[in-house]
């Protein structure tokens, strides 16, 4: 196949910085304040009090966490708040060597989905693992939430610092 090679140069970031090329640059000013609603509000209040709260579906009897006001499987309104334990089982995990803003890491972050004790099978919350040798991670590992001190908790998923292995 014939190859076309154009007489061209690549633009460098210096070309933009020093104004050697013409360009328009915009950053969106898009800010939001979401109404948390019933389920998320109660969940965040629970986190502030160092409690994990779920919600049960009367139709399929599953306990859903994070809580929601309807069951996506049955399309039925959930009807009961359930306080769950802050222990669980690693459902899946990764050793991640880049941060979300693309900074390379020597020591990996360890995001995991943790099936929470008291919630239905397959119902987990996504969080981070800590105080554990990355090489020791395994599916099925038993873990417990490490809560931030009360005065540092703000009603956020980060009120849990991370989950660490449970000594049983």
């Amino acid at each position: 196949m014939e190859e076309f090679v154009y007489d061209s140069v690549y633009l460098s970031s210096d070309d933009f910085r020093e104004g050697r090329v013409l360009f328009e640059m915009w950053e969106p000013n898009a800010r939001y304040a979401w109404d948390a609603g019933v389920a998320i509000s109660r969940y965040l209040q629970g986190l502030k009090a160092a409690k994990l709260i779920g919600r049960s579906c009367p139709d399929c009897s599953r306990v859903l966490v994070p809580p929601r006001m309807f069951c996506e499987s049955c399309f039925y309104p959930t009807d009961k708040w359930v306080t769950l334990r802050d222990t669980g089982t690693v459902l899946t995990f990764s050793r991640c060597y880049i941060t979300w803003d693309l900074i390379q890491l020597e020591e990996p972050q360890m995001p995991a989905v943790i099936e929470i004790d008291g919630a239905s099978s397959g119902m987990g919350i996504m969080h981070m693992l800590g105080e554990v040798d990355p090489e020791a991670l395994a599916i099925g590992m038993r873990v417990r939430a490490v809560w931030k001190p009360p005065d540092e908790r703000s009603g956020s998923i980060t009120d849990i610092a991370y989950f660490r292995p449970l000594e049983e």
Partner: peptide, 27 residues
Amino acid sequence: VTPELSHKELMYDAAVRAYEDAGIDPR
């Protein structure tokens, strides 16, 4: 303003009424 409901809860509310009105089970 609808501070008492998340956007998902707002949609659920409307959907339940529509399905009830039509007499159907969306699932």
